[in-house]
Design a protein around this nucleic acid. Sequence first.
DNA 1: ACCTAAACCTGGGCGC
DNA 2: TGCGCCCAGGTTTAGG
Length: 263
Amino acid sequence: MPELPEVETIKREIEPFIVGRKIEGIEIKDHRNIKGISPEQFKKKLIGQKFKGLTRQAKYMLFELASGNYLTIHLGMTGRLLFAPDKYVKIVFNLSGGKNLYFSDARLFGKIRFFEAMPNLKLGPEPLQKEFTVEYLKKIFSKRHSSIKVLLLDQKLLSGVGNIYANEALFRAGINPHRKASSLSEAEIKKMQHAIEEVLEEAIKYRGTSDSWYVDAKGEKGGFQLRLKVYGKKNQPCPKCGTTIKREAMGQRGTFFCGNCQK
DNA sequence: ACCTAAACCTGGGCGC
DNA sequence: TGCGCCCAGGTTTAGG
């Protein structure tokens, strides 16, 4: 599923393609991804507008329009933004210059919203920004009774990390996902902070993880699935010590870890 | 304020 | 070949 590295990869591809282009038409094949506004209003508000910029906030893409309005797209689990259509296309943006941008989403978990002005997405700091410090993690970990794994997925505390990179970062830091966040020592918090930054930067470098549905705007798979150490590796040997990797549900999410390497 | 769990949704993979 | 079943999970919502 698209997490920070996957969304960043798509953002980098889409930005030069859309900036300066006008939305000349919108084809809505399925309106269920459009939230908070009717399909008719969605078209009326957007057709004729020009894209000014595109930024990423955690897993969201924030499209800035020349009018000062905004469009946000969250890809959910199976959402795609594509230069060419696939069989799950729900919305087509007809752009000036005879180009199209396709929004595809097999499972309809993606969300598209229109805003009159810059929205506040109510997200916690994201790992590649300067607010992501050991001090910040100490602050949010110290008073929490939930597990470190569940906490890493809370977008209000820390944004951009999803299930794949939470599992991978915990493995790299050598921390057991069941540990209470408040039980981590300062040294462990430092390892955690470093592991999160490292795994996200590496995943961006490899253009994301195509474990199941993810493809970039060109429809191509990423490369990081070949570098996963624990995610999806149930019953396979740990790459460090050979112990069988376990899978357990935590917070209703698949959690993969090595019981020997992660204490 | 904090924490947990259900609900949303459907293609793909599996067993038979 | 095809049917039924179960799984995947980010975010929102409800409830304790």
